[in-house]
Every structure is written in C-alpha cells, then in structure tokens.
C-alpha cells in the first residue's frame, strides 16, 4: 500500500469529520457541537473496533466472509437487552443508565467468550472450526430465546428493543466513550506485540507453526482481544452483524495486501469513513427515517459486488 493511498484516506476522514461536526451547526458550541463530537467519538471508536476485530478474526479462521458476529457475541447482547426490558421495563432501563448497561453488557459478552474459549480452545487438539460451529449454534439458540422474550414484552418495550438491535451512534455518552477508549487502547498495545505473527498465521496453521509461531497461544490471545473489541463496540454502538465483512474486504481490495501492518490501520480508516458517511446521510438526507446498518449494508454491498465483478482475482 502506498503512502499516497493512506494519506488520501486520512484527508478524506478529516474532511468528513469537519463536515459532520460543523455543517449546519450554527457554530453552537454549547449543545450541538459537543453532541456531534460525542457521536464522532463513537464512530471513531466503533469503527476501529469493528475493523480490527473483523480483519484479525478473518485471519485467525482463514476465511474472508466471516465476522466475530458468528461467535454469538451480539446474540448475548441482544438477549441481555431483551431480558432487561422484560424484567425492568422501559423505566427501569432508563433508571439503569447507559453507563451501567454498557459495563454490564460488555462484562456479559466477555464472560460468554471466556467460557467458550476455555471450553473449546484449552485442549490442544480442538480447533478453530469447532469454535465457529459451536458459536453459530449458540447464536441461533440465543436468538430463539431472545425471540421468545420479545413475545412477552409490550409493544412500547419492543420498539426500544428494536432500536437497540440496530447500529447507532446516538447512544454514545462521555462516560461510555471513556471506558471504550481505554479498552481499545489496551487491546492495541497488547495486540501490537505479535502483529507480524498474524501475517504468518495467514499461511495456515501448520506453516505458521513450522515458521516458529506458537499458534495455539496466539489464537487464544487474539480471540480474547477480539472478544474485548466486540464487547466494546456492541455495547457502544449496537450489533454490527456483518458490516465487518464489507470493511475488511474493501480494505483488502484497496491495499492489495493482507499484511496486517497495512490492513489494520487502513481498515480502521475505511470503517470510520463508511460510518461517518452513513451517519451524515441518515441525519441529513433521510432525517432518521432509516438506520446506519441498512444504509451501510446497501451501499457497501453494492460496492463490494462491483469490486467482485470488476476485479476478477483473488485479493
């Protein structure tokens, strides 16, 4: 990846961010701009989480059409939100506060992933595919359970639940943003240490071991880091489901490389560009009549198909 591409996308992010914060704000520094800065911070942290977790996850499972959503992390989040609504109702949810809900959902996702990794990755002979299979089955089981809970809640509570099940940057608050930022920072510091070993893992498990990578340990470490990123992003901006697929694959197409020192920074920037653009469109053009997830799926899906048709090569 050339320096030109990277500087190009960084400039694009800055321009978009300035437009997002200042367009039509009347330079109101008391309310409008601080609120927009909160959303922008949510987009930045959420984008970095989604991009890093998706790209690293695709490396670990050696598959370009999966995201960590398949492990059932988001299903745990949704079930927890549905349970909260059933037990506490909308008033109780409001009383609980966004900050506490953020911490509790993150904590639950981490417990879930810890239990699953401990169960399936601790014995040496078990592999990543078994983890994926169990994750997929648990996603469905939890999803069904959530549907069952949905039937028990009132229509008003259901509309609250539906809002929580979409990706949205409006939930971000200074308190949750701070927790999220610290968590992402810690993940980046720890993950950076073995960044080059991730490249070797692209060659497959056996080749990686032959080249001196302690594969079981690295898989455990990076799966844990991914769980933290997903817990943070899901609690912060809601489930992103398969948005990560587009972000990762668009990144591979732009970098024409799978080396993580290229894909991880560019992927984060790409995710932020996509999220800011989608949020701008939702706010300005559609006036909140559609959601970020729907917009991103539509536009990125079309772009991705175009890439596939036009560039007929493996990336």
């Amino acid at each position: 990846m050339s320096l030109r591409v990277m500087s190009g996308v960084v400039v694009a992010v800055l321009v978009l961010a300035v437009i997002f914060v200042f367009m039509g704000s009347g330079l109101d520094f008391d309310y409008i701009i601080p609120k927009r800065l909160e959303r922008l911070a949510g987009i930045l942290i959420g984008g970095v989480c989604v991009a890093l977790s998706s790209i690293v996850f695709q490396t670990l499972v050696n598959n370009r059409i999966l995201t960590p959503a398949i492990m059932g992390y988001e299903a745990v989040y949704l079930m927890w939100q549905a349970m909260l609504l059933l037990i506490l109702g909308t008033h109780g949810m409001a009383a609980l506060g966004v900050g506490l809900n953020f911490l509790m959902s993150s904590f639950l996702i981490l417990i879930y992933s810890w239990a699953m990794h401990r169960w399936l990755l601790s014995q040496g002979r078990r592999d990543v595919y078994q983890l994926l299979l169990v994750g997929l089955v648990l996603t469905m089981v939890l999803g069904t359970f959530t549907q069952f809970v949905q039937l028990r809640i009132s229509p008003g509570e259901f509309s609250v639940f539906q809002n929580l099940s979409y990706t949205s940057f409006n939930r971000a608050q200074p308190e949750t943003l701070l927790y999220a930022f610290l968590a992402v920072l810690a993940v980046c510091v720890v993950g950076y240490r073995y960044l080059s070993e991730l490249d070797v893992l692209l060659l497959g498990r056996e080749q990686a071991v032959s080249l001196g990578v302690n594969e079981p340990q690295r898989i455990r470490l990076y799966m844990a880091l991914i769980a933290i990123l997903v817990a943070v992003s899901t609690s912060l901006i809601g489930p992103t489901a398969f948005l990560g697929i587009f972000i990762a694959n668009i990144t591979y197409a732009i970098t024409k490389s799978r080396l993580h020192r290229h894909t991880l920074p560019l992927g984060s920037v790409v995710a932020v560009i996509i999220f800011i653009t989608a949020q701008l469109l939702v706010e300005r053009l559609f006036n909140y009549k559609t959601t970020v997830s729907i917009l991103v799926n539509l536009v990125c899906g079309a772009y991705f198909l175009m890439l596939m048709v036009r560039v007929r090569t493996t990336l």
């Binding site: 370009r64 692209l202 060659l203 497959g204 056996e206 080749q207 071991v209 032959s210 080249l211 001196g212 990578v213 302690n214 594969e215 024409k256 490389s257 799978r258 090569t313 493996t314 990336l315």
Partner: peptide
Amino acid sequence: IPVADYARKVATLRQSPGFNLRL
C-alpha cells in the same frame, strides 16, 4: 524446545498447501 527456536533448526513443508492469498 520452544517453537520459535525449533523453527531455526527444522523447516517443514506440508503437501500442496491450499492457498487463497494474493502474495
């Protein structure tokens, strides 16, 4: 022997590695 050290002593090539990387 740690995996990282063993990789400087013994190199292994598996049969027909399936490959979907653009390298």
